[in-house]
């Protein structure tokens, strides 16, 4: 096991940030922590990177205890905090050089590992890090976290504030790094990114809701979801929310995801009801649940 977390709890003054968290991450796995802001993801990352001490529970990273063996962990993990945390007044190359030096290595030594990412930012290597675009900053931060060839890589919301194209590229990079045997723990508030992980843990309010592969999580969704559309989405939402048989109503892109509380639900009834509410162009069709649906269901 690359990471094991046993019954970790952590509270700040009077806020419970984490409550009885347990999970394991296998060697070479790409594991995602999926949850909204304030779910406790960053706290968990800080405990695993030895920056914080949990109130209860134990955890190991790369076989080392996070409290007693913290020095060994600091030697063998790569950490990319949620906030851009490089030296803004240093150039791309200087940042990379600096982190290589403090980890006792050189850029040349591990160039293979970062090559694919670094070639993208290399044209800007004399630019100050503070003057890079969001996506470039993340790529540089990833390079800096990788420069010492870590066994485990911690990425705390690496794609927050990054454009969709860069996000996609970033995840492709993570996939490639995974193939090189690096265990990756990544957190994200974006549900669409969850599907790219091997396994995910859905986390909210400091508690883990479910841990499984993205496919299994979706498969275990208990109800049939319908895509509902009408001429007026706002009124549609209000009408659905007012409908006494509804189980869940969530806006989802151009549709509204609807589930019914009855086992013998007939979409025709719903169409009649919506027409009675003066809605027209009503479309109702079955759809597959997404991770977001699961999350909303679990978080209810």
């Amino acid at each position: 096991m690359s990471i094991t977390v046993n019954h970790i709890s952590k509270s700040y003054k009077n806020v419970k940030a984490l409550e009885d968290i347990s999970f394991e991450v296998k060697e070479g796995e790409l594991f995602g922590l999926i949850g909204p802001d304030g779910a406790g993801k960053t706290t968990l990352f800080r405990i695993l990177t030895t920056l914080l001490i949990a109130n209860e529970g134990t955890a190991t990273v790369a076989g080392f205890d996070v409290v007693t063996d913290y020095k060994k962990i600091r030697n063998s993990v790569g950490y990319m905090p949620g906030r851009f945390s490089l030296y803004q007044d240093l150039t791309v190359e200087e940042n990379l050089n600096f982190f290589a030096t403090i980890f006792g290595t050189t850029i040349e030594e591990n160039y293979e590992l970062i090559k694919e990412i670094y070639v993208q930012i290399e044209p800007f290597k004399d630019r100050r890090a503070g003057k890079l675009s969001g996506g470039m900053k993340q790529k540089l931060a990833l390079c800096c976290a990788l420069i010492h060839k870590p066994k485990v890589l911690f990425l705390d919301e690496p794609t927050t504030g990054v454009d969709p194209v860069s996000r996609k590229e970033f995840w492709e990079m993570l996939k490639r790094l995974q193939k090189k045997g690096i265990t990756i723990l990544v957190s994200t508030p974006y549900m669409d990114e969850a599907a790219l992980c091997d396994r995910i843990a859905l986390i909210q309010d400091g508690k883990i809701l479910q841990i499984d592969t993205p496919q299994a999580i979706v498969k275990h969704y208990p109800k049939q979801i319908y895509n509902v559309r009408a001429n007026n989405t706002y009124q549609l939402l209000n009408s659905l929310n007012a409908y006494r048989h509804n189980h869940s109503v969530f806006p989802f892109g151009e549709f509204v995801h609807y589930t019914d509380s009855r086992a013998d639900f007939n979409p025709k009834d719903l169409v009649d009801y919506l027409e009675s509410k003066n809605l027209s162009n009503i479309e109702i069709e079955k759809t597959e649940p997404t991770i977001e649906d699961t999350f909303m269901e679990l978080a209810k």
Binding site: T50, L51, Y87, F99
Partner: peptide, 12 residues
């Protein structure tokens, strides 16, 4: 700036 976080999680 948060760089202390990275420095702490390093062998320095």
């Amino acid at each position: 700036l948060g760089t202390m976080e990275i420095l702490l999680v390093s062998p320095i």
